[in-house]
C-alpha cells in the first residue's frame, strides 16, 4: 500500500479545517496506517502548526525555509519533489492553492492526478476508485485512478466530514535540509484585499440572491424590488459578477463573501459548490430555478421549478399585497 501524505494548509500559525478532512480521506483509502502531514513554511507559527497535528497524524514532516514564508505553489512544488518518496499518494485541498500546485506537481513526480474529489469508493490493488462531479454538479462520475506510480489527489473542501479518531502521539521530523535552494520564476508581490461595497450582505438576515437565470442586467431590478418589499438585500452568484451586472462585494461564495442569513432566496442560481461554500449557519433556503436538475435543489429546503423572471414579480406583488393588508 502506498504511503499517504496530506499537504497542510495553515495561516498565521493555525491549521486550516481541510487538515482534518484530509485525515478522513486518508483513512478511507487506508484505515490501517495513519497518514503523514507535510507542513511547509517559515517563522514563529510553524512549530505550533506541527504540534497541533501530532494527535491526528502518524508523522509530521516539517520543511522550514524562508522562501516558503508565503505559499508560492512553484516553490512548494520544488520542496515537495525533494521530499516525497516515490509512488506516494498526496492529498491536497482543491482550493486556489491546490489548483495552482497539484497538476504540475503530478507531472514532476510522474504520478496520476485526480482533481476535485468528493468521495472515496475503495481500492483494488493499484486501482483507486473515486467520485467526482461534472457539468457543474449536474451529474456524478466514478473514476478509476492507477496509483502504481503514486497519485496527487485534490479533495473538495467540505466534502468529507472530519472523523473522531483515537488520539495518537507522533513525532515531528524536520525535513528542511532535504530541500535545496528554492528559486521561482513567479514571485509573490502582494495581496489586495477586497473592497467593501455599498451594501454589506454579511449583515442581512434575508438575502434575495440572484444568478445566471436573471439573463440580463436590466432584470436585476426585479430582485431589487423584491428585496425592498421584504426589507432584504440583493446578493448574487459568480456569473452575475462576471457579467458586470453587480459589484464583486455582492458575491456569495468561496471567492466572494461568506454570509449567514436566516433566509436565502436562491433565484436562478444553479448551486455550484463554490457558491454554496459561502452560505453558512444553515439558513432556510428557498430555490427558484427553471432547471429541475439544478444542484441547488439538493441543498434547498423548498424548491420551485419556474422562471425567476416570471416568479419574482409575482412574489413582489404578493409581498406588497400581504404587507399592505397587515399594515392596515
Amino acid at each position: 500500500m502506498a504511503r499517504i501524505f496530506s499537504y497542510i494548509v495553515h495561516r498565521g500559525g493555525t491549521v486550516d479545517d481541510s487538515a482534518a478532512e484530509l485525515t478522513a480521506v486518508a483513512r478511507k483509502i487506508d484505515p490501517t496506517v495513519p497518514p503523514t502531514a507535510i507542513v511547509t513554511g517559515w517563522g514563529a507559527g510553524l512549530d505550533a502548526v506541527c504540534s497541533s497535528l501530532l494527535s491526528s497524524y502518524g508523522e509530521v514532516w516539517k520543511v522550514a525555509n524562508e522562501a516558503l514564508s508565503y505559499p508560492n505553489a512553484e516553490l512548494v512544488r520544488q520542496a515537495l519533489v525533494s521530499i516525497l518518496p516515490a509512488n506516494s499518494i498526496l492529498l491536497v485541498p482543491h482550493d486556489h492553492f491546490g489548483i495552482d500546485l497539484s497538476p504540475g506537481l503530478s507531472i514532476k513526480v510522474n504520478s496520476a492526478f485526480v482533481p476535485d474529489v468528493l468521495g472515496i469508493d475503495g481500492i483494488e490493488g493499484d486501482s483507486l476508485r473515486l467520485v467526482r462531479q461534472e457539468f457543474g454538479g449536474q451529474v456524478s462520475a466514478h473514476v478509476r485512478c492507477d496509483i502504481s506510480s503514486g497519485a496527487v489527489i485534490n479533495v473538495r473542501p467540505g466534502a468529507f466530514k472530519p472523523e473522531q479518531v483515537t488520539p495518537i502521539s507522533s513525532v515531528v521530523f524536520d525535513k528542511s535540509s532535504a530541500v535545496g535552494t528554492l528559486t521561482a520564476r513567479r514571485r509573490y508581490l502582494e495581496t489586495i484585499v477586497a473592497e467593501a461595497g455599498d451594501v454589506d450582505i454579511t449583515k442581512h438576515s434575508v438575502l434575495v440572491s440572484i444568478g445566471r437565470g436573471m439573463q440580463e442586467k436590466d432584470n436585476v431590478g426585479l430582485a431589487e424590488e423584491l428585496a425592498e418589499a421584504l426589507g432584504a438585500a440583493v446578493s448574487c452568484s459568480r456569473p452575475v459578477v462576471d457579467a458586470k451586472w453587480m459589484e464583486k462585494s455582492r458575491q456569495v461564495g468561496s471567492s466572494g463573501k461568506t454570509v449567514k442569513p436566516k433566509v436565502y432566496l436562491a433565484c436562478g442560481i444553479s448551486g455550484a459548490f463554490q457558491h454554496l461554500a459561502g452560505i453558512k449557519g444553515s439558513p432556510f433556503i428557498i430555490a427558484i430555478n427553471k432547471n429541475s436538475k439544478a444542484p441547488i435543489f439538493q441543498v434547498a429546503d423548498v424548491g420551485i421549478v419556474d422562471d425567476v423572471l416570471e416568479f419574482l414579480p409575482e412574489l413582489t406583488n404578493k409581498v406588497r399585497e400581504m404587507r399592505g393588508v397587515a399594515a392596515k
Binding site: E134, V139, A141, H142, R144, F297, Q298, G303
Partner: peptide, 24 residues
C-alpha cells in the same frame, strides 16, 4: 492513468420540498 468508469446520479439526501402549486 485516470479513467471515468461511469456517470451516475447520486442517491440524494432528502432534497428540497418542491412546491407544485400555481405561480400565485
Amino acid at each position: 492513468k485516470v479513467r471515468r468508469v461511469d456517470y451516475f446520479v447520486p442517491a440524494l439526501s432528502k432534497g428540497a420540498d418542491m412546491l407544485h402549486g400555481s405561480r400565485e
